[in-house]
Design a protein around this nucleic acid. Sequence first.
RNA 1: GCCGAAGUAGCUCAGGGGUAGAGCAGCUCACUCGUAAUGAGCAGGUCAGGGGUUCAAAUCCCCUCUUCGGCUCCA
Length: 645
Amino acid sequence: MSIHLLYPDGSSHSFEDGTTGLEVAESIGSRLAKAAVAVSVDGAEYDLSRALPSGSLSVITDSTEAGRHIIRHSAAHIMAQAVLGLYPGSTFAIGPAIENGFYYDFDIGRGFTPDDIEAIEARMAEIVAADQPFERFELTPDEALEVFADHKFKVEIVKSVDDSEVDGSSGVISAYRNDAFVDLCRGPHLPSTGRLKAFKLTRAAGAYWRGDENNPQLARIYGTAWESKKALEEYLHRLEEAELRDHRKLGPELDLFSSPPELGSGLVLWHPKGGVIRKIMEDHSRRLHERFGFDFVFSPHLAKADLWETSGHLSFYAENMYPGIEMDGGQEYRVKPMSCPMHVLIYRSRGRSYRDLPIRLSELAAVYRNERSGVIHGMMRARGFTQDDSHTFCRRDQVDDELAMHLDFVLTWLRDFGFTEFEADLSTQPEKSVGDQELWTIAERSLEDALKLADIPYRIAEGDGAFYGPKIDVHIKDAIGRRWQMSTIQVDFALPENFGIDYVDAENQRQRPVMIHSAKAGSIERFFGVLLEHYAGAFPMWLAPVQAEVIPVADRHNDYAEAVVGHFKSMGLRAEADLADATVGEKIRRAMTSKIPAVVVVGDDDVANGTVGFRMRGLDEERGVGLADATDRLTSAAVLPGEET
RNA sequence: GCCGAAGUAGCUCAGGGGUAGAGCAGCUCACUCGUAAUGAGCAGGUCAGGGGUUCAAAUCCCCUCUUCGGCUCCA
C-alpha cells in the first residue's frame, strides 16, 4: 500500500502508507520541515504527526496566514491549560484564533485582573519551556460528554456538534492532549508547545457565551502570537502606529473637532479647521450628486410618530430611535434616524408618470440614532451624524441601469478621496423577506451585473440581505490595510408598498416604483474619521484646512509675508502667515507637526526679488522660487478631483 | 446595557493619609533668526463629581459620571 501526493509544482510522489506530514516535509527539505506547522491535503489540514491520505499536498509554514492561525490556536490551548491549572474549579468555553491573535473564554467566578494576566503569561512560558507534545485522539460524542462532564460549555459544544455534523467525520469528535490538559479541537496543532516562539496576552474583557446578552457573561483573555519574536515586535509596532493615527487623538490635536463630556456622549463639535474639510467634502458630494443626476431635497429633524409607524421603523428600528416627544396635546413626534420616509412623502406629493422616472432625491441629513453607550467610538460611531442619503425611485426596467450608475457613483466618490482598493459584499434574499420573487431575482442579478461591470472583487453573502431587499456594501482598504465598510446601495421593495406609492405607466395603469437607497460616504462623520486615519492627519492639498503656511524669517518680513498670503488667497488657496515671535525653525516645526502640505519661507532675498522659499510635503526645499511660479504649483496641487484639465 | 481598565494644569505624565509637581502648550520680556524646538520670567488645579472613614483624603471605602478596550468571528 502506498499514498500518492501531488506537490504544488505539479510533480507526483509516492510514499509508504502511514507516512506523516513531517516525514514528507523532511523529504522535501530540512528548512521546509523546520518551518512547517502542518500540512494540507486536498484542502483538509493535518497535524505533522498524522498519517496522510493521497491527494494534493501543500506544506503550511509558520510565516503564512494559515500557519499563524495554527500557531495562535495552539497558543489559545496553552493559555487555557495555564488558566485551568492556576484556578481550580474554573471552566472554559471557546478559544479560537482570530485576526492577529486569539482569545479564550473562561468562567473563573470573577474577571481577570492585570496580575492574573501576568501570572497566566508566566505559566504559559513554563508550558512552552516544557515542550509538551500535542497529541490528537478521537472520541465518540458519548465519550466526549464523559470526559468533559465537569465543563458545561464543552458539554453544550459536544451536543451541538452531535446535532449538526461538521467536517463529515460522522460521529467522531477530535480532541487534543498535552500533558494532563485535554480540549476539544478540530485541529490541527503545532507538534509541541515548544514551537510557540512568541506570544503576548493583550487584554482581558467580558464576552457573552455565544455572543448573546441573555447568556452568562464569561471572562475573555485576548492574546497575540507570531512565528518569531521579530514578527511579534513588528505587530506591536503596527498597533502603536495605528494608535498614533487614531482619529480621536488626531482630531483634537489638529484642532479639527472635539467631543467634550459637557456636550453628551456620541455627539461631536466641528471646529473651524475640521469645518473646512467637512465643507469641502460636502461640496464635493453635492457636485458629484449633480453630475450623476440627483436632485437635492431637505427634510426636518422631526416627524410624527405615525410616519415612522407607516415606514415600519417603529416595528423594526425603534430600539435605535430616541423616545417620543409630546406636542400639540398628545401628538407624538420622533427624531429622525433616517430620511427615507420623508423622501417618500416628497415623491408622493403629486401624481407621478412613468416619464418622470427615475426620480433621484438626495440629502445631507442630520440624523440621530440611539447607539448603546458601549459602542460609541469617536466619529466612527456617533449618536448624531450626517448621512449622505439618497433615494431613487424607478421603474423595473430601469433597475439595471440605475444600479450600475449608483455603483459607478460610489466608486468615483471613493477614488476621489484616495482609496484604491475595494471589496464588495452582495447580500442576497434572507429566509424571511417581503416583495415578489421576480423583483428579488431581477435586483440580485442587476446588483451582481453592476459589480462585474465595475470589475471590483466581491463575495456573495447568501441570505444576508435586509428583509426588504438585497444590497451591496462597499469596503475600502486604508493606508495600513484595515477594512472599513463605507458605501451602501440597497434595493427596497417594502417602503413603496408601505406608503402605497405609484406612478402611471404608458397604458395608464398604476404601477409600484422600485426604490434604491444609497449612501456614498455613509456618515460624513465616520467617513471623515476614516479619512483622517487613512492620511494620518496629513490630508492631500485639496482637503487640507491650511494649504500653505507663510513664514517670515524676521519681523521686517511680516508685511511681505502677508502680501504673499493675500496673493495666495486671491488665487483661491487657503494660506496663513505665522507672525508669532519665534524662530524660523520653531515656526517650520509647527507647520510640519500641523501637517500643513506647503511651507513658504520669506526673507531678505525674497522681499528684494519677489520670490519665496518653497517646500511641499515629500519634496525638497527650494530657494528663490518666483511668486507666480509658487502660486501655480500650489493651485495645480490643490485642484479638485475630477476637475483636472 | 454588561465585563474589565482608567480619570491629577490645555496636552503627556509623576506623586500616593500631613502646603499640588515636571515637560510641552499659553502669557510677558529679551533675541530678529533662511528650513523640525533661542533664552529668561510669569501664570495655570475643587487631583472627574458626590458621600463616607480620619485630627487630617488627590491618596483608603462606597455611589455616580465620563473615557478607553471587549461583548458575530462556532470545539
